[in-house]
Design a protein around this nucleic acid. Structure first.
Lengths: 165, 165
DNA sequence: ATTGACAATGCAAAAATATGCATTCGTTTT
DNA sequence: AAAACGAATGCATATTTTTGCATTGTCAAT
């Protein structure tokens, strides 16, 4: 079977996470070189669906980025897929604790996606999260149990247990 | 003295924070109705400078939002404006402490605005802030007094005293 | 296999946004 | 005060992004 829409959406995410992209045309040509076949119109719709935005980077340029607090459930692998092979398992690079703080490193650009997953995990021990580009900060409650937090996260980020620093 | 550029930038922020805006033209007409005089070209430049982006909202529409992790201290409201502006007081949803950390939840998109206000409060106990989309992280000094921090914040965020978790 | 329903897509055009260039405005320097 | 400089802006245009509409592809039900 040919490349599915989902493959394409994933590829788009990876592209904007990996490179500095300033226009849809750039994404488009990257996609094409990866063997996808589509027009800019479709890409625009994909980007809307993925809640990706063209954001001024403060250095005088623009860059496409995954929107903050994006709930990407639709594109997110299902529970079944999560346990299998998926981008998600590769999103979280490491997690480290220090007092009530945990720093979760992700692949570039994935922080907000991962943060969203963490939020969704509804762990009692987690007060809140803050996502940068490749770093998610977790603030834990004073009485939070570290082991418990990791365990809870592992449902969504299977490998996380092996990535605790 | 006429309206300065800074006034205009502030107004833009307030507009996008207050209303659902989907295009620059909407912002423009709002600005004009507030007595500013400018063209779309200038607005586009302003928006770039403010790092405001047009973000898909996931409901099939677009919305202008302050970019995540943006710290735009240069464009702070004056004290007078802050105390007079009602949007600000409704921004903060809750605040919770955990050791040297406080997590201040805000309405979506308001985090950086609120973070600015917190910075402005110049509280001795606050080492610094980090703003996401709807969450502000306050890092407190080792000797900080929690009650004192809340009290200090209440000057700009009047309701905050009732929102301590 | 055919029909029907709906998602996905391309095409072309509209709409929205960004920017090169010339001009104006406000400051600083001589 | 005049000159010199850089920021700010408008104008016109280029570029980019979005969307209405028609078409095609997919899949389920009959």
């Amino acid at each position: 079977m040919a490349k599915s829409k989902n493959d394409r959406l994933m590829a788009i995410r990876e592209i904007i996470a990996t490179r500095d992209i300033a226009s849809q045309e750039e994404i488009l040509s990257d996609l094409v070189s990866r063997g996808f076949s589509l027009t800019q119109a479709t890409l625009s719709r994909d980007i809307k669906e993925l809640q990706i935005a063209k954001v001024p980077d403060g250095m005088g340029n623009y860059r496409y980025r995954i929107a903050p607090n994006t709930v990407a459930r639709q594109i997110m692998p299902s529970d079944a897929e999560v346990t299998g092979t998926s981008i998600i398992r590769n999103c979280a690079v490491s997690i480290e604790f220090s007092g009530q703080i945990a720093v979760l490193k992700t692949r570039p650009g994935y922080a907000s996606v991962v943060a969203d997953i963490v939020d969704k995990s509804q762990n009692e021990g987690i007060m809140g999260t803050l996502a940068g580009d490749d770093t998610v900060l977790l603030v834990l409650r004073a009485n939070a149990n570290q082991r418990n937090v990791v365990e809870s996260l592992s449902r969504w980020l299977p490998d996380i247990t092996n990535r605790v620093l």
